[in-house]
Amino acid sequence: MSMAAITAAQAGRQRRVLPGFGLTMGLTLTYVGIIVLLPVIALVLKGAEIGPVRFWAIVTAPRTLAALQLTITAAALAAAFNAAYGLLMAWVLVRYRFPGRRLLDAMMDIPFALPTAVAGLSLTALFSENGWYGQFLAPAGFPVVYTIWGVAIAMSFTSIPFVVRTVQPILEDMDRSQEEAARTLGATPLQIFVRVIFPAILPSFLVGTTIAFARSLGEFGAVIFIAGNLPMKTEIASLLAVIRLEEYDYNGAAAIALTLVAIAMVLLVLSNWLQSRLTRRRVPA
């Protein structure tokens, strides 16, 4: 309490001491107002104008529901894959030393660095029926392109770094004395992982997976190449919002967009809550 009070008092004094308050405040508010707030307000106003009854009718229309269901299912599949893959990568990169480890670490940033449209193009060509991967998958009864699996694969690719990069630093900073204690007491490596290591990285693991899920829900560029975008089948919700705009159905577009924003906000709050709750429980007061 006293620390916070001191910091606040110091900062309060700084307002008078350091220059630039007016200039930076003016610049930031102008920018935030024009670039961020005005467009978001336009969306909220449009949503309010629709009214709850029509809003509900738009969101529960069969085509919208199908799009939402596809988007959420595929994003859940992508998040599940990234939870497993991300945990494996974080573990291997932190705990093992082998030639090429740093290169493998750098590879984890490729999905963020590569534009999503480029990733979508490449994945579509690889997984199409005569592509490098698709030629083996399609005859095996596992078509990817133009199916929900394609959507999930595109979403997986673009959200790869989230779980790795949230779990990695926690694993690096972990105190290993508990692990060593468990080992000397005769615990097997698997027992040590499940009972000692996993509980410690659980908060960051859940947060990373939630962010990966949220990002997958909003993914567009990579998905539309591989999905085929068939209404009722492989049409994602954000694409449906754009289609409504192109039909000048601004109400439809706004209702779908607001639904997606609402889901994203719920996930954001959930991830913050998870983080604070699980961290608090781990650290004894």
């Binding site: 336009a42 969306l43 949220a214 829900l217 993914e219 954000s238 754009v242 924003v261 906000m265 954001l268």
Partner: peptide, 13 residues
């Protein structure tokens, strides 16, 4: 936390 496609929709609105 707002997906880019939603940003585009906001700008159009």
């Amino acid at each position: 936390s707002i997906s880019p496609i939603i940003a585009g929709v906001c700008y159009l609105l």
